[in-house]
Amino acid sequence: MNIQDMILTLQKHWSDQGCLLMQAYDTEKGAGTMSPMTLLRSLGPEPWNVAYVEPSRRPADGRYGENPNRLYQHHQFQVIMKPSPDNIQELYLDSLRALGIDPNKHDIRFVEDNWENPTLGAAGLGWEVWLDGMEITQFTYFQQIGGLEARPVSAEITYGLERLASYIQDKENVFDLEWTNGVTVGDIFTQPEYEHSVYTFEESDEEMLFQLFTTYEKEAQRIMDKGLVFPAYDYVLKCSHTFNLLDAKGVISVTERTGYISRVRNLARKIAKTYVEERERLEFPMLAKEDESHE
């Protein structure tokens, strides 16, 4: 099965389970979790079920398109279900079946793995899912987001699409994976991988990036004070990506590093708090919607 079909299959599967199908969010980010569709929406009491593909940038992992396993940008398929359904594990296993993975022909395990992202003040408990010894999915019950307790708890399922595809397509090099018939990951991504690596490690303008970080941070702060949570969060994402670029370039000193991380964390915390307050002011509209549909 090519990646395109995998995505279609997963979308169909989770759409059938009542998930909204969203598109990738248009600001750079390191993981699907950082999309506001997850990070903000998993806060507060409102129900939220969503699935989307998220291109995830990890500048430090860039390898000029030469490493068979590491990418500047890979793809995650992200699912959030809040509150976590009782049969969430079964729903997940069914999605593997839909992808043509027959559990009886493989060895599928849920191996303890707890997730933590200090930058976002987020933490969860769960597993990495093993398929014949390979980690294909991160499965997490959110316990804390932006420093706030997650209530109710969301289940987050993150498939590493390239990983999973390399298993399904039996390919060793990520660039040999078929995106769709006749077109490989390499055809699409070799050039950007190379150029992004050159940019990240050699060409990026540090001074400009430092300046951007401060500018974005200020702007996030300023508009958050006006209660504009979503635009403020966009700037937090920009801060985070800018930091990752600087970090990958190796220009952030040790002492500065902790400082930057705590600056992003403080912003994230503030945003989490403001988001919940704003939703409350709007009387948690999704909650009302759910009540309606039950009547």
Partner: peptide
Amino acid sequence: VGVRNGNAEHIDNVARGNEKVLKARLKD
């Protein structure tokens, strides 16, 4: 030698999958 959570059916398939994973790790 690994231990599967399951029976001996399709065990060769499981072994091959695990070999592939280990190969990637050892390549790293």
